[in-house]
Design a protein around this nucleic acid. Sequence first.
DNA 1: CTGCTCGGTTCAGTGAATGAACTCTCGATG
DNA 2: CATCGAGAGTTCATTCACTGAACCGAGCAG
Lengths: 177, 177
Amino acid sequence: MALGTDYAQQDCSLARALEVVGERWSLLILRDAFYGVRRFNDFLVHLDIPRAVLTTRLTAFTEAGVLRKAAYQQSPPRYDYLLTDAGLELWPVVHGLALWGGRHATPGGPLRTFHHERCGTRLDAAGGCGRCGVHQVPPADVEMRSHYGPQGPERDDPISAVLAERRLLLRPVRATT
Amino acid sequence: MALGTDYAQQDCSLARALEVVGERWSLLILRDAFYGVRRFNDFLVHLDIPRAVLTTRLTAFTEAGVLRKAAYQQSPPRYDYLLTDAGLELWPVVHGLALWGGRHATPGGPLRTFHHERCGTRLDAAGGCGRCGVHQVPPADVEMRSHYGPQGPERDDPISAVLAERRLLLRPVRATT
DNA sequence: CTGCTCGGTTCAGTGAATGAACTCTCGATG
DNA sequence: CATCGAGAGTTCATTCACTGAACCGAGCAG
């Protein structure tokens, strides 16, 4: 898509935000991070994204303070990419877009829905739980549920298989240690 | 949508949403629409965007049902671009991103803040008003306030001048009829 | 007739995304 | 020791969207 990179002429907070998360693939990478994807290769197979682009985005996110690297083994050095606090605060945006896309851009309705884990109520447009009166359900308390047709997910990579199940956000897709 | 601008392999509502609003300039155009910008030329001077891109985006938004054209004169035919109901539902996303950008990507803090018109309280991360207990303040009830340094806005186009004032969202930047 | 505004279209040049091939380190296997 | 494979990249030619400047055309205004 060649989404350029900056919006220098715009003195607006939204423009600043888009310089961080507005490039092609950026929000899908962060969505996967909320889903519990943490490793380079897992992002790669789940997103079908060129490796060079993934490298660029992960590096940029790390520099912007949206993700941070955490070593999961020493040699060779290998890192998990985890959401920082600033990254976690993007949950309302990710959820809002997914909700809107499910309502207005997905022929057949949403493929995934997000619920308050405690009570099962679907999150509202504000990301809150109407039943419990929770204004903003933190991502760690959100359960994702998939709604595929009879033939299951369209993708067949192992990450998609894991994510097809009902699970909490942020829970690692790999061996929960 | 043209080649390269989609995320065909991703069966996810977020991907569908990004195909509509995820291209370069898209969300800034919609932000302006929330600010009351309605005409081709007003978007153009305020965004400093190539005319061809603006044409492409406005047409795509219209086809996607996010904006609609409304004639404001007959000859030559001229149209306002207005948010549809689906477009208005993107407010939580636009607000969420602007809020996040003000917090985490704008050195010096947010340049604009959004408040519940009735009570002046700043909207929370969910887009609600804590004081009034309104879960989601609709954009028409939101007041935007600018916070520039001593020398005012950096841009000097007429649209920026209008938007520097305290005003309700969706109120047309032209002749308040 | 001339100039001006508004809302475009056209087009050459640029630069980001793409995808395939290659690299490097290390642990495990034989 | 030699080889293999996993993980995480880098390199590079090609493609394609964005950029910006020039051009176009309808309808006023003087």
